[in-house]
Computed example of a mutant assay.
Amino acid sequence: MSGPIARRLLRGAGSLAVAALVGAVIVLAADFAGANLFPMYLTNGTSLPVGVVTGALGAPFLLWLLVTTNRVGRGG
């Protein structure tokens, strides 16, 4: 997720450092959400693993990215 987000932030130019920074922010946000926001909805008070939260957010973004890229004609 971080590569395409960083490319959109930089308006087409790619940067490994910006992609790494965006990836770190995504993981930190997913860890915070899994540890603090979602346990109130779970019955036994456990926290969600960061991979579950990242996957739940990343899968719809990946599908949206595939659909919009293929619509423009740049997809594979």
Rank of each mutant, 00 (worst) to 15 (best):
A56I: 01
N70Y: 04
T54N: 01
G73F: 06
P60L: 09
V67Y: 00
A33P: 02
A6K: 03
R7V: 13
G12W: 09
L57M: 09
L57C: 11
A24M: 12
L9M: 15
N36T: 01
N70M: 11
G75E: 12
G58Q: 03
G12N: 02
N44L: 05
L9D: 02
I5C: 12
L37I: 12
G58A: 13
G55I: 00
G58M: 01
G76K: 13
G76H: 10
I5F: 13
L37E: 00
G34A: 06
F61H: 03
V53I: 15
D31C: 08
A29V: 05
G14D: 10
G55K: 03
L9R: 02
F32G: 05
A56K: 09
A33D: 04
R71L: 13
I5Q: 08
A35F: 05
A19S: 13
V18R: 15
V53F: 01
S15T: 02
L42C: 03
A20V: 14
P49M: 02
A59G: 03
L62Q: 01
G75P: 12
R8W: 14
W64G: 08
N70S: 13
P39E: 10
A20Q: 11
G23E: 01
L57H: 07
F38E: 02
T43C: 03
L28C: 03
M1D: 14
V18E: 12
G45C: 05
W64K: 04
G3K: 15
G23C: 03
L16H: 08
G12Y: 07
R71E: 11
N44C: 02
A13M: 12
V67I: 15
N44I: 04
I26S: 06
V72T: 15
R8D: 10
P60E: 07
G3D: 12
M40D: 08
S2D: 12
L63P: 06
G34F: 08
V72F: 07
G76R: 10
A56H: 04
W64H: 14
G73L: 04
F61N: 00
N44R: 14
A29P: 06
F38M: 12
M40I: 14
P60G: 06
A19C: 05
G51H: 01
G12K: 00
L57I: 11
L65F: 12
F61I: 09
A19T: 09
M40Q: 14
T54G: 07
